[in-house]
C-alpha cells in the first residue's frame, strides 16, 4: 500500500503526456471541428527532427525541443492551409478520410526516409531524481510535469489574454458571428492547427526516450490521447488535462496491479464503459438534432 503514492505520481507523469496529446487534439477540434487522426504521425515527424537536432547537430535539449515544436507548428499550418481548408463543409467521413490519409502518408514518409529500426533517443535531461518521502520523481517525470505546466499555462494565457486566443474562442462558438466581427477565419484556423501539431511534437519528443524512436512510436499514445480527450468531454482544455492525468494514473494502476502488458486494452475497455454511461464523456454536452 505504500507504493500507491509512487504509482499515482508516476501515473501523473505519464498522464502529462496523454494530457498534452489530448490538448493538441482538442485545440484543433475546437477550432475546426475536425479530429486530427494524423496527430500521432505528425508528432513522430517532429520527434525525428528533434532527434536530428540532438544527435547530428548536437544542439542542446531546449533547442531540439524548440525545433520540434517549430516544425510541428509549420506542419500544422501547411496542412491546414493547403489541404483542410477545402474541407470545411465536407462530411465527417471525408474529413476523417483525409486525416487518415495524412496519417498513412506521413507514417510512410518517415519510414521511407528514416527506416523502421528503432533508434535510441538520448536522455533529455540528465539531472538527478527528486525524492519526496517514499516517492521518487525521475528526471523524465519532472520534465513531463514541467513541459505540461509550461505549455498548458502558455496556452491558457494565449486563450484568455490575446486577440488570437479570443479569435479562436470565437470561431469555436459561432463561426459566422466571428467573421462578422472581423475575425480572419483562415488565419485563425491555420494558427490553431499550428498550435495543435506543435503540441503533438512536444508530446512525441517527451515520449521518445521511453518508446524509442520509430515510426509507430505514437500509436499507443494517440489512443491514450483520444481516450483522455473523450473522458474530458472533447471540449475544454481543463477537461483534456484532467482526462489525461486521470487516464495516466489509471493506466499505471492497471499496469501495477492487474496486467502490466494489457493496460491499453483494459483502459480501452474502461473507455467503453464510460461511453456507455456517459456517451459524451464527463464534461461534454449532448448535441440534439432538429427535425
Amino acid at each position: 500500500m505504500e507504493i500507491i503514492p509512487q504509482i499515482v505520481v508516476s501515473g501523473l507523469a505519464e498522464g502529462s503526456l496523454f494530457a498534452l496529446a489530448a490538448l493538441g487534439i482538442i485545440v484543433i477540434f475546437n477550432a475546426s471541428q475536425i479530429v486530427n487522426f494524423a496527430q500521432g504521425a505528425m508528432g513522430v515527424a517532429a520527434a525525428y527532427v528533434a532527434w536530428f537536432s540532438l544527435t547530428v547537430l548536437h544542439l542542446p535539449f531546449v533547442l531540439a525541443l524548440a525545433a520540434a515544436i517549430t516544425f510541428g507548428f509549420a506542419l500544422g499550418v501547411s496542412v491546414e492551409t493547403l489541404l483542410l481548408r477545402r474541407l470545411q463543409d465536407a462530411s465527417t467521413m471525408t474529413q476523417m478520410v483525409v486525416t487518415l490519409g495524412l496519417f498513412m502518408a506521413i507514417l510512410g514518409a518517415v519510414g521511407a526516409l528514416c527506416g523502421y529500426n528503432p533508434r535510441a533517443f538520448p536522455e533529455l535531461w540528465s539531472q538527478h531524481s527528486f525524492e519526496f518521502g517514499s516517492v521518487i520523481l525521475r528526471p523524465q517525470d519532472t520534465l513531463n510535469f514541467a513541459i505540461l505546466g509550461t505549455l498548458a499555462g502558455g496556452l491558457t494565457l494565449l486563450f484568455r489574454h490575446t486577440k488570437l486566443g479570443l479569435a479562436m474562442r470565437a470561431i469555436t462558438q459561432d463561426r459566422f458571428a466571428a467573421r462578422l466581427m472581423g475575425v480572419s477565419l483562415t488565419r485563425t484556423l491555420a494558427l490553431a492547427w499550428g498550435i495543435g501539431v506543435a503540441l503533438a511534437g512536444a508530446t512525441a519528443v517527451l515520449a521518445a526516450p521511453v518508446t524509442t524512436l520509430t515510426p509507430g512510436m505514437m500509436d499507443s499514445i494517440l489512443i491514450y490521447g483520444f481516450v483522455a480527450a473523450i473522458v474530458g468531454g472533447f471540449g475544454t482544455f481543463s477537461g483534456a488535462i484532467v482526462g489525461g492525468l486521470v487516464v495516466g494514473v489509471i493506466d499505471n494502476l492497471v499496469k501495477t496491479f492487474l496486467a502490466p502488458e494489457l493496460s491499453l486494452t483494459i483502459v480501452f475497455g474502461l473507455l467503453l464503459l464510460v461511453l456507455y454511461v456517459r456517451p459524451n464523456g464527463f464534461f461534454g454536452r449532448r448535441v440534439a438534432q432538429k427535425v
Partner: peptide, 22 residues
C-alpha cells in the same frame, strides 16, 4: 521493398481521392 513507400503513396492517394474524386 520499402514498406514506408507504399504507405506514402496510398496515403497521398487517399487524400487526393477525398479532395478531388470523392
Amino acid at each position: 521493398a520499402t514498406n514506408g513507400l507504399s504507405l506514402l503513396i496510398l496515403g497521398s492517394t487517399i487524400v487526393v481521392v477525398a479532395l478531388y474524386f470523392p
